[in-house]
Design a protein around this nucleic acid. Structure first.
Length: 477
RNA sequence: GUCCCCAUCGUCUAGCCAGGCCCAGGAUACCGGCCUUUCACGCCGGCGACGGGGGUUCAAAUCCCCCUGGGGACGCCA
């Protein structure tokens, strides 16, 4: 059997978005699953809208997701000669013709057709034209006027189009540049693409493309049209629905593993399984299990998967990826033992790396203020006494979670203070907040000197009800 | 408007092709409980769907038809 070759062909007119990423993923998975090749091609024939910045974003995002291409990127802008030759050939063979209609005229015809409730369609007025006026012209493909064209879709089966529904599409613009439906055929044919896997929005283009393959004498590849990804309002996912760029999720602290896993399950399934690694996806992916109906993008489920991978991956790895997010928080640390320990305490608590960075901040700088409600509730005189005794007590025990907890509990009994109240006072002293990872793991990360230092700092505000009204102020004043 | 595609919990989906094992399973979200030094995690439980109507059949979520609904396409964009 012939080697499977798939491609992803984005146009650099926008960031790589969720939908494009899923198309890329499915193509990549299909090729990998069948031991074939995945080709990257950049469709930059629209020179005015293409931008370098978008190209970089697409390449970076694909790499970030782990979707490495075996060939390319090819650039259509560098293949113009090829398209010109093909167009010329069709012209010579009488399979295409010059059209002198102006865009304005065509626009006019379209409007009228729509207004009269007809399908807007070129009437072919230049098709039989014999003269060749000295005017700018576009080149149109001469499509059959009757009969049908059948698309054999791997997902949907036979889809039949009546040729009379199709019109003579423009393959070369009056400025000499080729159009999408034409270049895509030339390129897919020349690049030996065996399976064209793309969005449902291309299904209507497919019969025209098949006609072009035939006219050009190239073999027709297999097609599979994926259902579109929709926003919550059930219209095609777009910027209006919030963040849609893959890079935006990366910046928000999502892991590529979570994104890939989510994208894979959006329109594809494998029984009841929810969690898949890339390798597992390669092994299990099949077009047969791709659903035919459009799917609504659900950020909540993506978030859940992200939280899952944050919990599951090795702390060292998470710590490494956390670094840039810490930097954004103004925290410059190296990938040391303290960071890794801190990450361990945060793994079950953070849903994104960004969130984790913010939660981790207190490990690296002492509180500059204390949660106001917490101060009122927990920085009582009793707590003040407890802090003093606890501070002294821990100096005499080994600094391990177990020993610290034992000491803590003993002291609670002795001073007849509820563990909850004591714990919250200590938590507030150490972190400045009423919410944090477990007390003793926090202490373990901070180390004895820092713990004592922070308790002493807290003692300057704890147990001074007169000042409670202005709580949340800078401690030590 | 015309053409094309689609139709199971709010959402992602299993089941459908090879009808009975499905008064429909999983996940997420939400609600409740347990665990507990806070918050999470985790565990347990709950809520929640076969769009409607006709057929075919002993039997239909599963097969057929119609309706409805949703989406997409109709560019000298890709």
């Amino acid at each position: 059997m012939k080697e499977v070759r798939t491609r992803f062909a984005p146009s650099p007119t926008g960031y790589l978005h969720i939908g494009g990423a899923r198309t890329a993923l499915f193509n990549w998975l299909f090729a990998r699953h069948h031991g074939g090749k995945f080709v990257l091609r950049i469709e930059d024939t629209d020179r005015s809208r293409s931008r370098e910045e978008f190209l970089a974003d697409i390449l970076d995002s694909l790499s970030w997701l782990g979707l490495h291409w075996d060939e390319g990127p090819y650039f259509q802008s560098q293949r113009m000669e090829l398209y010109r030759e093909h167009a010329e050939r069709l012209l010579d063979e009488g399979k295409a013709y010059r059209c002198y209609c102006t865009p304005e005229e065509l626009e006019e015809m379209r409007k009228r057709a729509l207004a009269e409730g007809r399908k807007p369609k070129y009437d072919g007025r230049c098709r039989y034209r014999k003269d060749q006026p000295d005017l700018p012209y576009a080149i149109r493909f001469k499509a059959p006027l009757d009969g049908v064209t059948v698309v054999e879709d791997l997902l949907r089966g036979k889809v039949t189009f009546r040729n009379e529904e199709l019109d003579d599409l423009i393959i070369v613009r009056s400025d000499g540049t080729p159009t999408y439906n034409f270049v895509v055929v030339v390129d897919d044919a020349l690049m030996g693409i065996t399976h064209v896997i793309r969005g449902d929005d291309h299904l209507n283009n497919t019969p025209r493309q098949i006609l072009l393959y035939r006219a050009l004498g190239y073999p027709v590849p297999k097609f599979a049209h994926l259902p579109l990804i929709l926003g919550t309002d059930r219209t095609r996912l777009s910027k209006r629905h919030g963040a849609t760029a893959v890079s935006a999720y990366r910046e928000m602290g999502y892991l590529p593993e979570a994104m890939v896993n989510y994208l894979a399950r959006l329109g594809w399934s494998y029984g009841d399984q929810e969690i898949f690694s890339l390798g597992e996806l390669v092994e299990k992916f099949s077009l047969e299990n791709v659903s035919k109906s459009p799917a609504v993008f659900d950020p909540e489920k993506l978030l859940w998967l992200n939280a899952h991978y944050i919990k599951e991956e090795p702390p060292e790895e998470i710590a490494r990826r956390l670094l840039p997010f810490l930097k954004e928080e103004g925290i410059e640390v190296n990938l040391g033992e303290k960071l890794i320990k801190a990450v361990k305490t945060l793994q079950p608590r953070a849903k994104t790396l960004k969130e984790m960075a913010s939660q981790a901040a207190f490990y690296f700088r002492p509180p500059t203020s204390y949660d106001q409600k917490g101060v009122e509730k927990f920085f009582t005189e009793r707590a003040s006494e407890f802090l003093e005794r606890f501070k002294e007590a821990i100096k005499g025990v080994p600094f391990t979670e177990e020993a610290l907890e034992a000491t803590f509990r003993r002291l609670c009994d002795e001073l007849e203070i509820k563990t909850k109240d004591a714990a919250q006072a200590v938590r507030l002293a150490l972190t400045g907040r009423t919410v944090s990872p477990g007390l003793f793991e926090v202490m373990d990360v901070l180390g004895p000197e820092e713990v004592i230092k922070r308790i002493e700092l807290a003692q300057t505000v704890c147990g001074r009800p007169a000042h409670a009204a202005e709580a949340d102020r800078t401690p030590g004043v």
